[in-house]
Design a protein around this nucleic acid. Structure first.
Lengths: 148, 148
DNA sequence: ATTATTCCTATTATTGAAGTAGGAGATAAA
DNA sequence: TTTATCTCCTACTTCAATAATAGGAATAAT
């Protein structure tokens, strides 16, 4: 049970985007890639998916780039992760009862259902803006206290 | 983010074992495999891991088989799943900060940590005996009501 | 001795993850 | 109008993990 690089890089990139796209100015993928230390070519794929899902807006051509298509506080982690990792079905039978002929009576299926919705619940309780804020608080804490 | 067959089959097998091993009588792997509709040869591997982890007891030779090594209400799903799927680290950096040089300041890491412990919390709240009971209640509900 | 079980090690096939590569299309700047 | 710099699209490659299968050794009851 791991989150793939698609989800991990994508989430970090979205936080980066939320932080750096000020006043409708698009952000270059290459800049995000540099800051997040990720292959730019690979990020293209990830943003392809994000774009297709309509969560980011793309401006093509020179000086083009990407923008969030909603306010950062309206984008939950669940939304991002679902786009990149797929819906949180820990097991196929959760979404498709036909995947297993025991689906009707299987208690483990109930457990996977409960667990999946719990995960969604957690991911829904965070937005991009809350993560940006967490990050700024965190880096502030970690920086040396020059004022002493 | 999926549970592999190892975890899925293994959990079902453990519930089966909890249900069918009465009074110290071991259960044949082949019977579990038949009831759960799973390859017996593959189940051997799964029980190898469970045995090594000490959660089941094995009796070798003819009329041998497997037994739970603890009371069913003392075995949580988290224990079983951790043995079969590994610890619930959604991302490597959660357990090993050296896995990423940004681990110290990365907020997504905090999220994966929180999410992982939430998952463990849910899995810790169910035991084999609670699942056996859930199942018996469920099949009772689903069965036709002959008494009408 | 035979039979039925767990145990152990190898091997295989298929799939998905994680990227690379190369260029086409779009648009602003020169 | 040309050129540089972006996004976009399709195909390909590489590697590792999953999901088994196979064959036999060890063990113990009959």
């Amino acid at each position: 049970m791991k989150i793939s690089t698609k989800g991990r890089y994508g989430l970090r990139a979205m936080i980066d985007l939320a932080k750096y796209s000020k006043e409708g100015t698009p952000v270059f993928l290459s800049d995000i890639a540099k800051r997040q230390d990720v292959s730019g070519k690979y990020l293209e794929h990830i943003f392809g998916a994000l774009h297709k899902a309509g969560i980011v807006k793309a401006l093509r051509g020179r000086n083009g780039g990407y923008l969030l298509n909603k306010q950062p506080d309206e984008i939950t982690l669940n939304e991002v992760i679902t786009i990149l990792e797929g819906p949180c079905n820990l097991v196929d039978c959760v979404s498709d009862a036909g995947a297993c002929n025991k689906a009707g009576t299987c208690v483990t299926r109930d457990i996977w259902k409960i667990l999946g919705s719990k995960i969604e619940e957690v991911l829904n309780s965070y937005t991009l803006s809350s993560l940006v804020q967490m990050q700024s608080e965190k880096t502030q804490q970690d920086s040396p206290m020059y004022y002493i």
